[in-house]
Design a protein around this nucleic acid. Structure first.
Lengths: 142, 142
DNA sequence: TATTAAATAAAAATAATTATCATTTAGGGG
DNA sequence: CCCCTAAATGATAATTATTTTTATTTAATA
């Protein structure tokens, strides 16, 4: 695996502890955290870090294709270090956002795109519903 | 077509000029306006209308299934009087949001959902890209 | 028509994000 | 290795979208 500092350098970014911290945090989670959550997670180890820096860092990363922004209809944006377009599930009960990897879908959308007067750059599919865990808990309590 | 007042009444809502205006405005557009845009559009005919009322009205409508909220990654939410889940295209150049009606997709998602430990309630597909109009304009200018 | 609970407008409050700006720092050149 | 400078940071103010509050108005029922 490529070192974070190296990745930043290749993108033409100055390597700073803050940027390394944000990127590593995102690499090591599948939780799709928002800026606030990232900030809180880094506070213990980076006590001088500011929330504005997190926002600015995420914005740079987004422009350079290091992260993707995801809005599932909450107040705030979530971020994902997996930049390849991929579908997500959102549990409307516990709020958990999970990645889905369904090659079929990608292919199907490509095919459909060809039939439209629209040049698809990225497709985002969000499935809203009840995750397995919540469904089982609901059944127990009824 | 059912009268707006009747629809509101059936949902157990008090019929007010503001609610009728908001709902009719959404019925008569395919632009997926946000709260601000709805407010501005209604200002000429409803000069006393307040933005807070637009927000509250949209919130009621959403709860009752009269409108659906759509977030394509802008700062604000858009609203659609077509409440059936359906895909959208978003032009990353002109910002236009359009409805797509692709039955195949709905079916495919249903099938895939069966294979997941996830009970799908609604799926939202957003295709980001360049619309035909923008693509043609780009070609002219190059 | 009178009553009353609910809806409205206006304004203040909140939340998420962005901008400003003085200070600090990364990283290239000497 | 240190200096220099442009860029990054932190603190804070500003902005934008949305929600809440509250006094007033109104829809709808008796």
């Amino acid at each position: 695996m490529k070192a974070t500092a190296q990745i930043l350098k290749e993108k033409g970014l100055k390597v700073t502890p803050q940027r390394i911290a944000v990127y590593n945090m995102l690499l090591n989670t599948t939780e799709h955290p928002n800026a606030e959550t990232i900030y809180k997670a880094l506070e213990p180890t980076n006590p001088t870090m500011s929330l504005a820096t997190v926002y600015k860092t995420l914005d740079y990363f987004k422009q350079l294709g290091l992260v993707q922004e995801l809005n599932v209809g909450e107040g705030s944006s979530r971020y994902d270090a997996v930049v390849k377009c991929h579908p997500h599930t959102v549990c409307i009960q516990c709020g958990k956002v999970r990645d889905l990897y369904l090659e079929e879908l990608t292919e199907i959308h490509k095919k459909i795109a060809e039939e439209l007067d629209f040049e698809v750059r990225c497709e985002q599919l969000i499935l809203y519903g009840i995750c397995g865990k919540c469904r089982r808990e609901n059944n127990e309590n009824s």
